[in-house]
């Protein structure tokens, strides 16, 4: 950062070195502020989570995870992610495709609706489901008569997770697909490709990095969602507690090692997600550079 600033100052002759180049103490001071801030706000809490989780060694950590209620919370969280991510993948691609490649009435409304889960507080999302499926909700009596449980049961948890993760894939794809326009698809169609062929051979390869990125974000939120899920959970131990809910319960029961063991597991999942994301960004950048090279190469030979 400091290097870049120095370089910039050096080349900008018109403004003069002194005017644009920050004094040494300021550069160092600002850098230190940033580093200290990062350390205190991000690194230290992470260290504390892991230190507490392993404060009774590996055995304590393993015993905490192996406890049946914690284990069922892990399974429920994974289930919620495993259901909501593919659903939102399909929905997100379909919505982004419709929005970016076609003109239709109500398009802006659709964009707004997709954004809704971003803009409302998760507790409202949860309450919405209670109002809809609760015993006295709109569909409650109908569901009760058929003995279908949604709220305070696993389906409610999954639904709430799907709801809060709806925007991630679509929001990632819409600007990308809009920027790409529809010329390539039109070209494919004019060369005789079917709609599906154009979609799988042209659209998907063009958006694949954005798509994967959206899926990763969606997955991260699905694993970590607390608010909406808390409202519809009913907190039945061993049945409707997800990992974030179980962490809160364990903490409130003064079981700090198990609470932080679960927390560290969740953090690990998040870190893994970020590592994958980083790898994908790196690959995306490389493949982008490659295509640019190829295009330049083709243009040069032509």
């Amino acid at each position: 950062m400091a290097g870049a600033a120095g370089h910039f100052g050096g080349t900008n002759k018109a403004g003069g070195r002194v005017g644009t180049r920050d004094p040494r103490w300021m550069r160092w001071g600002l850098t230190m502020v940033a580093v200290v801030f990062l350390a205190v706000m991000l690194i230290l809490p992470l260290v504390i989570v892991f230190a507490t989780a392993f404060s009774k060694g590996w055995a304590g950590f393993a015993a905490a995870i192996a406890e049946s209620e914690s284990w069922s919370a892990i399974k429920l969280t994974l289930l919620a992610a495993v259901v909501s991510v593919p659903l939102n993948l399909v929905f997100g691609v379909a919505a982004a495709w419709a929005i970016s490649k076609f003109e239709f009435r109500g398009k802006n409304l659709l964009i707004t609706v997709i954004d809704l889960p971003f803009s409302v507080s998760p507790i409202i999302a949860g309450m919405l489901f209670v109002l809809l499926f609760g015993a006295h909700g709109w569909l409650g009596p109908w569901l009760a008569a058929r003995d279908i449980k949604i709220i305070f049961a696993v389906p409610g948890i999954v639904l709430a997770t799907v709801f809060v993760t709806v925007p991630f894939v679509a929001r990632e794809l819409i600007p990308l697909m809009q920027a790409q326009g529809r010329e390539e698809e039109e070209a494919a169609l004019s060369l005789g490709a079917s709609g599906w062929q154009a979609f799988f051979r042209v659209t998907i390869p063009n958006i694949k990095w954005g798509l994967i990125y959206g899926v990763i974000l969606c997955n991260a939120r699905a694993l970590g969602e607390f608010g909406a899920v808390s409202v519809v959970s009913g907190h039945i131990q061993g049945v409707t507690n997800t990992m974030p809910l179980q962490i809160e319960i364990l903490y409130n029961e003064y079981k700090f090692v198990p609470a932080f063991a679960m927390a560290s597991l969740l953090v690990l999942m998040a870190l893994l997600t970020l590592v994958v994301k980083h790898g994908i960004e790196w690959r995306a950048a490389r493949s982008h550079a490659q295509t640019v090279d190829e295009t330049v190469g083709v243009a040069a030979t032509a």
Partner: peptide, 8 residues
């Protein structure tokens, strides 16, 4: 409240 809302 949860029981009223259908927590069985």
């Amino acid at each position: 409240r949860a029981v009223i809302d259908g927590l069985e």
